[in-house]
Design a protein around this nucleic acid. Sequence first.
DNA 1: ATTAGCTGTAATTTTATTATTAACAGCTAC
DNA 2: GTAGCTGTTAATAATAAAATTACAGCTAAT
Lengths: 143, 143
Amino acid sequence: MKYSTRLSDGVHILIFMLLNPGAELTSDAIALSIRTNPAFVRQMMSLLKKGGLINCVKGKPRPTLAKSPEEITLFDVYKAVEGDKPLLHLDTHTNPECGVGVNIQYALREYYDKVQKSAEDTMKNITLKDIADNYFNRTGKEE
Amino acid sequence: MKYSTRLSDGVHILIFMLLNPGAELTSDAIALSIRTNPAFVRQMMSLLKKGGLINCVKGKPRPTLAKSPEEITLFDVYKAVEGDKPLLHLDTHTNPECGVGVNIQYALREYYDKVQKSAEDTMKNITLKDIADNYFNRTGKEE
DNA sequence: ATTAGCTGTAATTTTATTATTAACAGCTAC
DNA sequence: GTAGCTGTTAATAATAAAATTACAGCTAAT
């Protein structure tokens, strides 16, 4: 498959909103920056809204962050745009008649959960503000 | 795309070898358990061999672990079968004329690296023995 | 020596998941 | 009232994975 860039694009959208507070910000403008199409941006924004991260109104091109950047973590964005999709995937297609194979995958699941948790814990400690600060340092622009 | 199950299948192969020490173990037999085809198993085994995790000889269906199960970590298997493929993917397709977008992705990279590192650190602390023990507990069989 | 059976590897096809696109109903604000 | 936007759905294209095919070369048994 294609690699999912939803988390990256979700953050992209949020930072874009942070950089343009109160300004008119259409899905077309954001799409131009991500180099995707407006409908995809609107789909992402719909998920971000459902996740409680942004507020936006149909017909009105002025979306706003629903929380301060310090309160939005990378994990929040991940959950909003990827849902429960894990980073690692068990092979759920093993031969069901082979108990060995089935139990290996069950055994693995426990350890995949640990990997997932450590990744998520790290994501929970990264906020939109951190990423924005890093962006500002990069561009020399001050907050 | 399809989700990659290479790590799961790599572990599957290693545990299978651990369970059948010294026995004849053809790629056909392993493929039957994973419910895949022998050529894919051989491709995975080729990678595991390059990663220094197993020994096997062309024409001879008796692969062996190159290290003890305590010395093989989940990270070793991940590196062997996935190489440098990260868990999270930046959107490298943003509009190059939009400096904002480009720099957002650069900023994000630093944080993705942190997430990757925490996942890898966890993987480094999980050994094939851990997974095998969990498997044995599950099946009631003792080591 | 011959040969059956296996491995190692490359090339092609199929499949799964994603982004892309098109389309349109409904809201907003001028 | 209408231009421009959002929200949503459905269909299509793109991409990376597994599945498959094929075959040269090794092993070991006879």
